[in-house]
Design a protein around this nucleic acid. Structure first.
Lengths: 186, 186
DNA sequence: AGTTGCTGCGCAATCCGTTGAATAAGTAGT
DNA sequence: ACTACTTATTCAACGGATTGCGCAGCAACT
């Protein structure tokens, strides 16, 4: 639906190859939208067919040739049109949370194990986002205001998650202190 | 991928029709995973083919007949197997955030308009989650610990979002006070 | 010499998800 | 009387996304 628009946003700043975009989807924009290289190449193909982007073929030696894509006026028009109309609220699909909701079937130990794994991941993300944000503090925060705000979103999100994880831990601890009836169905 | 497991989690507590499940996906579990009724009926069909669930046909008068599904032992085994192996991190696909990332192309006014719309939605959700959570406080919070924790997750999430929205508002206000160069590309 | 990893592009099959519609009967409101 | 909503299930078409594979060459490590 709006992978195309995420790509157009990225191409707005600079010419890039599919490979470059894939890397950015694994980092910066990945915060907000993610995609694999297959999807990206496919979408670039379609965007090209619709002349929203065009490319230059760059032969390289030592490395494989590449295509450097840039956005066209039509692409920019399309992007602006899309920006104007309201976005649908994101659908939520969090497998880990489904597990929590069905937590009665698991034992606390395995829940805590996975919780800690997820927490590590979140903490890692928090660090990268924070260091990126502090870099922006130093240099140019006005120019890159929207990058900064996107990072802030990521930071607050991770923090909220980690705070929740603490709640889960203490709730499960309390529960084990005064043992509770084991679900009869298991 | 794990719509099936979300359904199995729901069927764990009680027999339900596709219609019942659809309602629950719009409420409780919808917090964490959402699906339309078409998807649910389809998935119930598959689960039935694989004998993870079975159903009784209930003729009704006044209303259309319905099928009441219940989980089988095989279904429960499958669910437990799934609960054991680590969940993949959720893929993020937030169109509104893509717009923020590409915010240089929009004007502050239209960003703020959409921000407020989204904030309304979040505030609404926050209220429903909070009232559901406080109901659990009164009666049985130990029995429904995982429902409670799921709600807490939703609450913290909405709060973090609303806090972020405040940051966006004040950043955009500051920006307008000392006017900034309009992006040259537009 | 062999493996792994990075840069770079692409195809095909399949599955998941969304949109839109149809059917059918009852209830509640204007 | 007409409209709209609720209960209840299902089909068909399309498009988006994932998984798996393949090609190709260079760099760097073991």
């Amino acid at each position: 639906m709006s992978l195309r628009h995420a790509i157009l946003v990225l191409l707005q700043d600079q010419e890039a190859s599919g490979y470059d975009l894939a890397r950015e989807f694994a980092n910066s924009i990945g915060l907000v939208w993610n995609a694999t290289h297959q999807q990206i190449y496919l979408e670039l193909g379609k965007l090209n067919d619709q002349s929203m982007v065009k490319y230059r073929h760059i032969p390289q030696d030592g490395k494989p040739d590449k295509k450097l894509y840039r956005i066209t006026d039509e692409g920019r028009d399309e992007l602006i049109r899309w920006l104007r109309k309201p976005a649908a609220p994101p659908r939520i699909r969090d497998a880990f949370m489904v597990k929590i909701a069905g937590g009665d079937l698991s034992d606390s130990a395995s829940i805590l194990r996975e919780l800690d794994d997820q927490a590590d991941l979140r903490r890692e993300r928090l660090n990268t986002f924070e260091s990126l944000a502090s870099k922006l503090d130093d240099t140019s925060r006005d120019r890159d205001l929207f990058t900064y705000l996107t990072l802030r979103r990521g930071i607050l999100d991770q923090q909220a998650w980690l705070h929740w994880a603490d709640e889960v831990r203490s709730a499960l601890k309390k529960r084990e202190e005064r043992p509770v009836s084991v679900p009869t169905s298991v």
